[in-house]
Simulated scan of single mutants.
Amino acid sequence: MIQLLFVAIGGFFGSIIRFFISNRLNKHFFGTWIANISGSILLAILLRYYLTGTIPDYLWLLLGVGFCGAYTTFSTFGNETIQLLLAKKYQTAMYYVLSSFTLSIILVGIVLVW
């Protein structure tokens, strides 16, 4: 039961910070892009430390599962991509999708190999 509490607390703060970023950028898709890229990097760093035993289980649950899980959001990413496509902003949608996936994967790879 305590594990659920750690995930919930992390998720609470992750969702609030993502909401703050989104509002600061006037709910523009760039806020989701920033959250997803930075959240991927943070998750990779946390995963590396968790797998090497540097951080304990509760910290992984709090920050990795809870915070990063709520801070990054695939549903918002999908919705914003559809909104760009419906607005006929095809090039922007393509750059958004490709840069989100590519940067996340490359940066996570760098962190895990580093």
Rank of each mutant, 00 (worst) to 15 (best):
S15R: 02
K88A: 13
G31C: 01
E80W: 11
L112S: 01
Y71L: 10
S75R: 09
Y90E: 06
Y58R: 09
K89F: 05
S100Y: 00
L61A: 08
L84H: 12
K89S: 13
W60C: 06
G39M: 03
Y49E: 14
N26R: 08
F20C: 11
M94L: 15
Y96M: 06
F12W: 07
I34R: 00
G11P: 04
T81V: 14
Y58S: 14
L62V: 08
G66I: 12
Y95P: 05
L112M: 06
L63D: 07
Y58M: 09
A93E: 05
T102P: 02
I110H: 06
Q91E: 14
V111L: 00
V113S: 13
T76S: 15
I45F: 15
W114T: 09
W114D: 00
P56T: 09
S15Q: 05
S15N: 00
W60S: 06
A87I: 10
L4T: 08
I106G: 04
I16V: 09
I34Q: 02
L62D: 07
I41H: 10
Y50I: 01
G64V: 11
S99H: 04
F74D: 07
V111N: 02
A35G: 04
A70H: 12
K27F: 10
I105P: 01
T52K: 13
L63M: 14
Q3H: 14
T73Q: 12
V7W: 02
R48P: 06
I41C: 12
D57N: 14
F19I: 03
L61S: 00
L46Y: 08
I16K: 02
I16W: 03
G69Q: 12
G11C: 01
K88P: 07
I16M: 05
R48Q: 13
L43P: 12
L103D: 02
W114Q: 04
F6L: 07
I55H: 03
G31V: 00
L85R: 11
L63E: 06
N23K: 15
Q3W: 13
Q91N: 15
G64C: 10
G64S: 10
N26I: 00
I55T: 07
Y71Q: 11
Y95Q: 04
S15P: 01
L62Q: 06
I110E: 00
A87D: 15
L59V: 14
T72N: 10
A70R: 11
H28C: 03
T81G: 14
C68A: 11
L84I: 12
L42S: 12
S100L: 01
L46S: 07
I9E: 02
C68F: 10
R18F: 01
I105W: 07
V111A: 04
S40G: 15
T92S: 13
N26H: 12
G14N: 01
N36C: 00
T73F: 03
L47P: 05
I37D: 01
I45Y: 12
R24T: 09
S75T: 14
N26L: 07
T32Q: 00
L62T: 06
R18T: 01
Y58G: 02
L43N: 11
L47N: 15
Y96H: 06
A87V: 07
T72H: 09
M94S: 14
K27Q: 14
D57E: 15
T81M: 13
G11S: 05
L98P: 03
F74M: 14
I16R: 01
R18G: 04
H28R: 00
L62E: 08
T54F: 12
L84R: 10
I21A: 00
I37Y: 02
A44Y: 12
A87F: 08
N23Q: 13
I16T: 00
M94R: 11
L84C: 11
